[in-house]
Design a protein around this nucleic acid. Sequence first.
DNA 1: ATATGAAAATAGTAAAATACTAAGATGCCA
DNA 2: TGGCATCTTAGTATTTTACTATTTTCATAT
Lengths: 151, 151
Amino acid sequence: MNFSNKTRYALRMMVDIAANQERGKVKIKDISARQDISQKYLEQIITILTKNDLVKGERGPQGGYTLTRPASEISVAEIVNVIEGISAVPCIKENGVVCERKDVCTTIGMWQRINEAVNKIMSETTIQDLLDEANAKGIIFIGDPMPEYII
Amino acid sequence: MNFSNKTRYALRMMVDIAANQERGKVKIKDISARQDISQKYLEQIITILTKNDLVKGERGPQGGYTLTRPASEISVAEIVNVIEGISAVPCIKENGVVCERKDVCTTIGMWQRINEAVNKIMSETTIQDLLDEANAKGIIFIGDPMPEYII
DNA sequence: ATATGAAAATAGTAAAATACTAAGATGCCA
DNA sequence: TGGCATCTTAGTATTTTACTATTTTCATAT
């Protein structure tokens, strides 16, 4: 069982945007520098977030990204879902639909319980929660234009 | 996030052995037929289980496998751990040790909570539980020598 | 209008993990 | 000693992951 780098990068990006957007649109280039993740890879990932209406990008000079909703209204579950899907096992599809072996499968009940437990935690955790946690730890930057912190 | 086929096959094997061992040592060939999984692949998987002292194999005619402990004393967590390890993210290693970014990571707390939730369910579920669930569903075979059921 | 900065879209690629398959060695029992 | 079944070790095709590169589109400042 594992969550991918892609998913974790997506979360770090979302928290980064949440932390910085009040000072203006947030550029991939800056996120890349702060998070020390390849700009190209971040571009690819944020495309998915854009298409799923979690962030909004504006082009041109002074362009950049902002969240489409308040950070307190975006759950971790949403992000994980669009990047890799939340499913403990192949037996359980995105919409909770269970595979055709379910009537002869002894383990399906357990997989479902695990799936629900993970989903619950992720649905209850918002980007704002992660940001608060970061602030509590004192790891959010203050500075302009390109601070040297890491989320 | 996902658990591999290998892990699920290992669990199905363990339940199969638990279900059949009272009638004698359980052969890979028969598990393969009942579960419809390649015999060669099962051999490879059960090697891991044997080395981790979860099952015991005896060779020769009338040979086969048995569980080393009662099914009620073998947790799902043990099996998952030896096959692929239980860890939600690369940040958390087998023994609960956390990665070096932990002091600047906003998500580590959440990953740990998820990890613990999954671990709890798997530690509390035993092979006997899965077998009971199968019996309740009426999917455990009665018959000899090669019934046509699937666990 | 035009140059520029930034997102958006698409394509490609190397490395790792997954999911097997194959071949033979070892050991046990009749 | 013949055959059965485990045990051991290699090999391989497919898929996924984790990127990198190229080109296009578009908004803005000059």
